[in-house]
């Protein structure tokens, strides 16, 4: 592997200072499940690697009345081993359970999955469905951005040089809410999504009508998408097949996939519809529990 320096700062301030001093040739290291391979294969050529796992703010994992605070470096395993998060933020834990095998889940963070900004990254449609906000820190202070605006192109995002992702905040879950993330892959596990869909719904007290919904879609465009129309079309509608089909049509309409070894355009569009339906149905089932 190419030569680089390594730092493991224990405060956010020193991490930002080191990243700024590294002058563009720096990469943050969380679980390393993307980064180490990218350095080995020469896709990334940092002179300095800053391990962010010792920074307290990036290790926060709190669920309370304010919602969920998820530090950017928290591993998938830590997330899904928390029963309350599994219950309230199921779409997120569904995604964490399918990112690689156990060895990868023990290291891989959701922050790293987001910052790697792959179009098929499994956590991102789930984060979109759960309405996550990214908290970013840099030499100019901190700023927040909606997760659906974070990725800008395959492998690219809004982080400016010197900035790091600190945490992801998700709002508290209203009563009668449920969520789900699922993907289509040709195998049972350890593969890259052909399409991935995250859905979250909130129903009224009767459990018969949608109050609100959010749908995120992965692997059908250069970045994961917030399916705004597909989500909003459901507001106020009764929970039935006709309503769900409206969301399915709207979700298919925004999918602009490519043909590659994992699937053709037609296939991916079709699967987008199928998975939107299944994600909604499971989210509804969970909302009613």
């Amino acid at each position: 592997m190419r030569d680089f320096e390594y730092e493991a700062p224990s405060t956010l301030a020193s991490a930002i200072e080191q990243i700024v001093q590294g002058n563009g040739s720096v990469k943050a290291l969380a679980g390393g499940t993307d980064l180490i391979d990218h350095i080995r294969t020469g896709r990334l050529r940092p002179n300095l690697v800053v391990d962010v796992k010792k920074i307290p703010e990036l290790n926060v994992l709190e669920v309370g009345s304010e919602g969920l605070r998820l530090g950017a470096a928290v591993s998938c395993t830590r997330i899904y081993e928390n029963a309350e998060i599994c219950e309230k933020y199921s779409a997120l834990t569904d995604a964490c359970h399918i990112i690689g095998g156990i060895q990868v889940q023990n290291r891989a963070s959701v922050g790293g999955n987001l910052c790697n900004s792959g179009p098929a990254a499994d956590s991102i449609p789930a984060l979109i469905a759960l309405d996550a906000t990214c908290v970013i820190a840099g030499p100019q202070g901190s700023r927040e951005i909606a997760v659906e605006d974070f990725c800008t192109a395959p492998g690219r995002n809004v982080l400016e040089s010197g900035e790091i992702l600190v945490e992801l905040n998700m709002p508290a879950r209203p009563a009668h809410s449920g969520s789900h993330y699922l993907r289509f892959i040709p195998r049972n596990e350890m593969d890259i999504a052909v399409v991935g869909v995250g859905a979250s719904v909130t129903l009224d007290d009767s459990g018969q009508n949608f109050v609100s919904a959010r749908i995120g879609i992965g692997a059908v465009a250069p970045t994961p998408l917030f399916a705004k129309e597909a989500s909003e079309v459901l507001f106020g509608l009764p929970v039935n097949e006709e309503s769900i089909n409206k969301a399915v049509e709207a979700a298919r309409a925004i999918a602009t996939p490519i043909t590659d070894m994992r699937g053709t355009i037609e296939f991916r569009k079709h699967i987008t519809g199928v998975l939107t339906k299944r994600a909604l149905e499971k989210a509804i089932e969970r909302a009613r529990q």
Binding site: Y6, A8, L29, G31, G32, T33, I36, D37, V49, D51, K53, T77, I102, Q103, V104, N106, R107
Partner: peptide, 14 residues
């Protein structure tokens, strides 16, 4: 916890 040691930097093992 199982990890892939090819994806861990030795310095991280401090």
């Amino acid at each position: 916890q199982p990890v892939d040691s090819c994806l861990v930097l030795a310095v991280e093992a401090e």
